[in-house]
Amino acid sequence: KNAAKIVNEALNQGITLFVSDNKLKYKTNRDSIPSELLEEWKQHKQELIDFLTQLES
């Protein structure tokens, strides 16, 4: 999976991924984040940080 797909899947579940101080963060109104999503974010962390940083610049 690529970073764009992961970010879109998160958005579809009401979760916004973003970068703050070079760290991957998220915002959501959900009570909890599915563990498989958290695991996927960890596996692709640097790719996600790079992707989101490019989007914001």
Rank of each mutant, 00 (worst) to 15 (best):
K1Y: 10
K1F: 12
A3Q: 02
A4V: 06
K5G: 07
K5V: 13
I6W: 03
I6H: 02
V7R: 03
N8M: 15
N8L: 15
E9W: 06
E9Y: 06
A10F: 03
L11K: 09
L11C: 12
N12P: 01
N12K: 15
Q13F: 12
Q13L: 15
Q13S: 07
Q13C: 11
G14Y: 04
G14D: 05
G14W: 04
G14R: 04
I15R: 00
L17A: 01
V19M: 05
V19N: 02
S20T: 12
S20N: 08
D21H: 08
D21A: 06
N22M: 09
N22S: 09
N22P: 00
N22R: 06
K23A: 09
K23G: 06
L24C: 03
L24E: 00
L24Y: 01
K25W: 15
K25M: 15
Y26C: 07
Y26D: 01
K27G: 05
K27I: 12
K27T: 11
T28H: 06
T28S: 09
N29D: 14
N29R: 07
R30Q: 07
R30G: 10
D31I: 12
D31E: 12
S32I: 11
S32Y: 13
P34W: 03
P34K: 04
P34H: 04
P34F: 03
E36P: 06
E36G: 09
E36F: 08
L37W: 08
L37I: 06
L37E: 02
L38C: 10
L38A: 05
L38Q: 06
E39N: 09
E39R: 11
E39P: 02
E39M: 08
E40V: 13
E40H: 07
W41K: 00
W41S: 02
W41D: 00
K42E: 15
K42D: 13
K42L: 15
Q43M: 14
Q43P: 02
Q43A: 14
Q43Y: 10
H44R: 07
H44K: 05
H44P: 00
H44G: 02
K45N: 14
K45E: 15
Q46T: 09
E47R: 05
E47I: 09
E47A: 12
E47D: 09
L48M: 03
L48N: 00
L48D: 00
I49F: 05
I49L: 07
D50Q: 10
F51H: 06
L52G: 00
L52K: 00
T53E: 06
Q54A: 14
Q54R: 14
L55K: 09
E56Y: 08
E56T: 12
E56R: 12
E56P: 12
S57T: 13
S57H: 13
S57R: 14
